[in-house]
Amino acid sequence: MKALLASWQVWAIGSAVFAALTAIFAKVGIVGVNSDFATFVRTVVILAAIGLMLTLAGTWQAPGTVSARSWLFLVLSGLATGASWLCYFRALKIGKAAQVAPVDKLSVVLVAVFAVLVLGEQLSPVHWLAVFMIGAGALMLALPI
């Protein structure tokens, strides 16, 4: 069990399952609610839940132990997350969850491209084919039903 919990694949599948539930729960919950306010509520809940997890696990870290570079990129990541959530909730308010979520997952394609361009990571031709297929699938799902 310990090895299973140390597997990135298990956590990635968990992320996908919870992201899917996020879309469904948000689509139901956003009815009659301003999308920006809905994003705010979601953020407060996440902040409280993660604070509780850090407390229960005893994994709080002193802010002074975090490098300035890490702070910069964590803050930038937080700003990007907030912008993503605002866009996602607005799209979900207007569109169908079955179309909004796949387009949102074009982030998978963008991560692959950015990882190669910015981080210098390498993808094999098979991986590029998979990236292309994910992009094509997401775009096909976005077509009007």
Rank of each mutant, 00 (worst) to 15 (best):
K2T: 15
A3M: 14
A3C: 02
L4Q: 03
L5Y: 12
A6H: 09
A6P: 00
S7T: 05
W8A: 13
Q9A: 08
V10N: 12
V10K: 14
W11M: 10
A12G: 02
I13G: 08
G14S: 08
G14E: 01
S15T: 12
V17Y: 06
F18V: 01
A19F: 06
A19W: 06
A20S: 15
L21T: 05
T22V: 07
A23D: 02
I24L: 11
I24F: 03
F25L: 01
F25T: 13
A26F: 00
A26N: 07
A26R: 03
K27I: 05
K27R: 15
V28W: 14
V28S: 11
I30W: 01
V31P: 04
V31T: 14
V31K: 09
V33P: 02
N34D: 15
S35R: 01
S35V: 10
D36P: 00
V41M: 03
V44W: 07
V44F: 11
V44C: 04
V44K: 15
L47P: 00
L47Y: 07
A49Y: 02
A49K: 00
I50L: 15
I50V: 06
I50G: 04
G51W: 06
L52T: 13
L52W: 07
L54H: 14
L54Q: 14
A57E: 08
G58T: 09
T59E: 08
W60Q: 14
G64D: 02
T65F: 02
T65E: 07
S67C: 13
S67V: 07
W71A: 01
L72P: 00
L72A: 05
L72S: 05
F73M: 08
L76S: 10
L76M: 05
S77N: 14
S77L: 11
G78F: 03
A80Q: 03
G82W: 12
A83L: 15
S84A: 14
W85F: 13
L86G: 04
Y88F: 13
F89Y: 10
F89T: 03
F89A: 09
A91M: 06
I94F: 09
G95F: 02
A97G: 01
Q99T: 08
P102T: 12
D104R: 14
K105P: 00
L106R: 09
L106Y: 04
V108R: 02
V109E: 03
L110I: 15
V111T: 15
A112L: 10
A112Q: 00
V113P: 10
A115E: 00
L117G: 04
L117D: 11
V118N: 08
L119E: 12
G120H: 13
G120L: 04
Q122M: 06
Q122I: 08
L123K: 03
H127V: 04
W128L: 13
F132Y: 07
M133E: 11
M133Q: 11
I134L: 09
G135N: 08
G135E: 01
G137W: 08
A138Y: 04
L139M: 13
L139T: 01
L141D: 01
L141E: 01
L141M: 13
P144R: 15
